[in-house]
Nucleic acid binder design. Sequence first.
DNA 1: TATGAAAACCGGGTTAG
DNA 2: CTAACCCGGTTTTCATA
Lengths: 152, 152
Amino acid sequence: MILDKTDKKLLKLLQDDSKQTNKALSIELGLSVTAVFERIKKLDANGIIKKYVALVDKKRVNKGFVAFCHVKLIQHSQDFVVSFEREVAQLEEVLECYHISGDYDYLLKVLVEDMEAFREFMVKKLTRINHIGSTHSMFMINEVKHTTAIEL
Amino acid sequence: MILDKTDKKLLKLLQDDSKQTNKALSIELGLSVTAVFERIKKLDANGIIKKYVALVDKKRVNKGFVAFCHVKLIQHSQDFVVSFEREVAQLEEVLECYHISGDYDYLLKVLVEDMEAFREFMVKKLTRINHIGSTHSMFMINEVKHTTAIEL
DNA sequence: TATGAAAACCGGGTTAG
DNA sequence: CTAACCCGGTTTTCATA
């Protein structure tokens, strides 16, 4: 699917606030309500828009402590990789996990309440997973920018 | 604000799909539509829910190339830090930027189309910012997990 | 429960390939 | 001639007091 200028503008608006009414969007875009409705339907159907979600303020729910964990596996056989990935994906503290290039194999973004909880997480959950060689953690001091909106 | 079990369940549902009708939510939670409405209103008003957004599939919009850049500043005087943070926050390719502990000062998550675009970004944008000492980039090979939902 | 508003759907008209 | 797009009106559904 090819996105024209209007689609991109529409996506920008929806990535910023998905609760706007089609009417408000139609005014912003200079289109009819129906046209907006159809464009959104198409963006949904084509999977351009994956889902609509509420974003929760992590500080207000006591998950203000963010850690980034680099993880290296002992071995890189298919089995090890698959089972590590399956297990790590199930950990509720892990919001993101990427297989990356470089010295370490994985980069994890971990959300917990505080350092104490992080220690618990490391000891009782992450390092309990087999095949982990070494880990290296960094802690968030300040969040400079955090958006879910992709510029188009 | 204290969240009870029902609030947490409600937040879980809304973090997964914010387009559900209050009726659907009320059935799921075993409440009346009005009760659900009031709880959501309260969560909104208290800033527990920050915003409602559409999530766009990065691969479908040609932003499937993800890089993580570590950045070290030359100096750490107030001025340098403030101006670096202000400038980096304005870069559209940078979705996330964290001031972190460890060998490097910052961790950036960068979304671009491909390696070529990443090169452009580094040369023309990131390293054009003053006060940058060194950088170290890692590239995403695979996204194992990526959720915006905080477990409560 | 009631009501005002918005979403969802439909038929028709317009333009571009 | 077909397909994609856009519009206005109608029905249904939802948010909200």
